[in-house]
Design a protein around this nucleic acid. Structure first.
Lengths: 123, 123
DNA sequence: GTCGTTGCAAAGCCTTTGCAGGGAA
DNA sequence: TTCCCTGCAAAGGCTTTGCAACGAC
């Protein structure tokens, strides 16, 4: 059985409230504003639990490492800016679902990463 | 100036000859078949050089870590099988390029990951 | 009172780096 | 000969894990 601790609630809240993917450090520092004693290992452990139960999704960023975001948002893509290195959420889906993969492959899910310059960096 | 060593050639050859992304360990062990003394640090150093000059592309796999493949192939997507955890190359591109990103964002490149079951694992 | 959770520190990966010897040009 | 490259080992990050104390139920 899982128990509802103040640390666990804080971590869940921080992830739910964010509008973009966050790294462990960011979750930790935001979480500490709620529960001061919050520990990094606790963040890792709880994020892993949330991943396993499908509440949270993992994004592997080429330079920022592993980021996490709630899985409860609508399907969307991610945009990595080469200039400022930030990750933005991009609403909607631009993938043609039909005949994507060769015969025999069953596509259950997909992820799209866009790379380029964000409005601030392209000017 | 860069010098052409037997180690460097071996690493380049191993990456060029593969039909799917490989991890450092795999590049190392295949490379050792060509140059027995090949060292892991040398693989890391040369792969990084190849990344910087754009010859090689990096793929971040959720469970296998960082994989590398030649950038000289035609544009294609990757398919991660949940069953056997292998990565397959998927030819072609199923992304609609127009109006993918919000106004102001300049899309320079993109990557598509498909997840599901490969023919062997979906049976 | 149980037993899942936490904080802390140590241990484990993967990757990078310092250094001295070796080899390409 | 020059100085880039390699092998080795140590050091760095990020993540996981062991353990005793803590706290939800």
């Amino acid at each position: 059985m899982t128990r509802q601790t103040s640390q666990r609630s804080a971590i869940e809240q921080v992830i739910q409230d964010s509008d973009r993917p966050m790294g462990i450090d960011e979750i930790l520092s935001k979480g500490k504003e709620i529960v001061e004693s919050l520990n990094q290992a606790t963040v890792y452990r709880n994020v892993k639990l949330l991943l396993d139960c499908g509440t949270v999704r993992q994004i592997l960023h080429p330079t920022q490492g592993t980021l996490y975001e709630t899985a409860e948002k609508d399907h969307h893509h991610h945009f990595h800016c080469h200039g400022c290195n930030k990750v933005y959420d991009v609403p909607g889906c631009a993938l043609k679902e039909d005949g994507i993969a060769p015969k025999g492959f069953v596509v259950e899910d997909h992820e799209v990463f866009l790379y380029g310059k964000c409005p601030e960096c392209s000017g």
